[in-house]
Write a protein that binds this DNA or RNA. Structure first.
Lengths: 206, 206, 206, 206
DNA sequence: GATGAATGAGTATTCATTCAT
DNA sequence: CATGAATGAATACTCATTCAT
């Protein structure tokens, strides 16, 4: 009865849940975990405080759900990109551009994401990181796989593929930070190109 | 080397201040700004709560002092390294190794530092970042200057020196993260070498 | 007589507010502003501390509300008396008896009122006095007006009406103090009569 | 050895005690009992905090001593005046003028005195009032005695002498309040004359 | 189911008092 | 003896969470 098509009821539920999460994200990203009260979230989401508690066990649960949702959504997109069966360099380029695009589209979610979740205490993050960390690592692994393939195809040097993945990811993050600080001076398309250039060819004149 | 000899009193003061900061650092780095109470810090530092307040105007002041101290100390070391008048590549190598060494020596301070200070609510960071952000930017600028010299010397490619600085810094951070997570599998010396390799020569086979 | 009918909710609210104020008054009058903690007030009023804060912004607000309420209520009664269009001496007699009656009915409120509000630190009184002082002055002015009329009617001597008002008020207070200390020995009806006698005819044998 | 002339030591002690009390009075009268910290008093008096505690058992003791001292000093003067063997009316006139003079000379002490000591919690006042109340009552009794003599001399009406004393005292206080608020508009000499006029002859035209 | 009033544990900070120097 | 550094009890106020309506 409840498997196939979500009854109207359930759709409504989902919509409400979404509104709560949206409100929470907006608030958390601006003022951090401890800077926001449940009453505020309730008011912004236009629900009674009690209703929030029908959907989420507590503030912590709401926060971790938020983080998970964000992580799930974004990392899914990246894994998709990385599973393409194309030319290694093209895939990597697409990875960087996609990641940049995600950042550009979700500036506010970023504040929660960047640095992998500070803002809440580390206790809270403990359980969280298991989930998020796993998702992140999956992307990194997928990226490493692409690298490995590249190495086998002799497109990339014979370096540790995992480290290459770490490197590309770190490079991306660094440039994305620049963009986050001053998106005028550092348009992300330019950033993306720069990242690829530096990653693929290095800085040394030969 | 200092102002005459710091009277025993003053030395004692300094020692106490240090103990407080150490206790606070340990606690903050584990549980974040809001996850730690002043009582806890006092207990850990083995001082009465009132004594803490003789040294620091308040929790915020204690926290920002901590951040500043760490930032000042470490970024001073890096600027020192970057002002050396040696061969570009050697300087960069030294930069990476020094940064790695700093991280290795101060694992707990890191948790506060990484991502440059989120963890406190955003209000608190406001004043803080001006200081810390400035210090960080100074290091980045110094790094960019080294890059520029390298470009002029035709050691490095004719890319934007500032972006090259961002790249090397990002690369370093990424590997340092790896090391932070699992220092067994990723000895920092190896990390340092890897960073240099990737930064200087890129990943592409030619 | 009021705005429609106060919903049961609102009546309940009002009752709660009243209980809080009553508890606070009792405590403040016995031990002064700083001698009472919010916890104590909450316990005495049989509410949770948080509930008190739903009704009053803070301790100061609770205190000033108390003072204002008392002042507003009592001074309204006195102004009513003084606006009667009767024989001057009758009005003054009624003023004294009414004031005495008020004191008799509100012994505890007195402790806050007498001396016009010291007991709270001076900071707190600042904003408060503007309100309370004004109310008190209004009564004094009304009393002075009655005096002036009495002078014009040749019932009272041609002295400064304002000073006469001050005198009668001071006389009343002095006797009320006596009564407050030992209400057995100084029944307020006797006090009232004495005040009138002394005020109207003086002490000198002619 | 220590009876007759106070050794220099003791004189010094007395001077120090005086300085402490002066500083405390100044502070207490401006900001009330709870608005002033012992550290502040120590700083203002230019003694170490510990030294204050050599002279006074605690804050409360310091405060009550202050009140007592003030009371003792002023009521002594008034008793002196009231013990004069002169014409009743002259004595009463002198009483009012002296009291006014005292007020004029000690505006700051007033704030502590007026209303008989609010500013501290009532608990603190409990023991205090025993002392101060007794002194005050002694003056009142002395005043009553003068009244009684006046009655016997047929200078005053045959009213209760104690109530007459209360009346004159209340009248004085009321006018002194006026003067305290606005000493320009209410010069105390004028006040004193007014008090006598009203007390002796009343307000009624015959 | 939805609501939001009531709850009370938790926390930064102050300040009277002590006591080693 | 004077000092003032150290102490820690005390307190106003916030906010996550519950539960009667």
């Amino acid at each position: 009865m409840d498997e196939r098509k979500p009854s109207r009821r359930e759709r409504e539920k989902e919509r409400q849940r979404g509104e709560m999460l949206t409100a929470a994200l907006e608030l958390f990203s601006k003022r951090g975990y401890h800077g926001v009260s449940m009453q505020e979230i309730a008011k912004k989401a236009e629900f009674a405080i009690g209703t929030i508690y029908k959907f989420f066990k507590g503030k912590e649960h709401l926060y971790t759900t938020l983080m998970s949702d964000v992580a799930v959504k974004y990392h899914a997109v990246l894994k998709e990109v990385l599973s393409t069966d194309e030319d290694t360099v093209a895939v990597l380029g697409e990875y960087v551009r996609t990641k940049a695009g995600i950042f550009a589209d979700n500036a506010s979610a970023l504040r929660l994401h960047v640095g992998w979740g500070r803002g809440a205490s580390f206790d809270i993050r403990a359980g969280l990181d298991e989930e998020i960390g796993r998702l992140y690592d999956e992307v990194l692994e997928a990226l490493a796989l692409v690298m490995e393939t590249g190495v086998q195809k002799k497109v990339l040097k014979a370096l540790d593929p995992h480290y290459m993945a770490v490197a590309l990811d770190g490079l991306t993050n660094a440039f994305l930070f620049c963009w986050l600080k001053d998106s005028e001076r550092h348009p992300y398309q330019a950033n993306a190109a720069m990242v690829m250039e530096l990653f693929l060819r290095g800085s040394l004149v030969r």
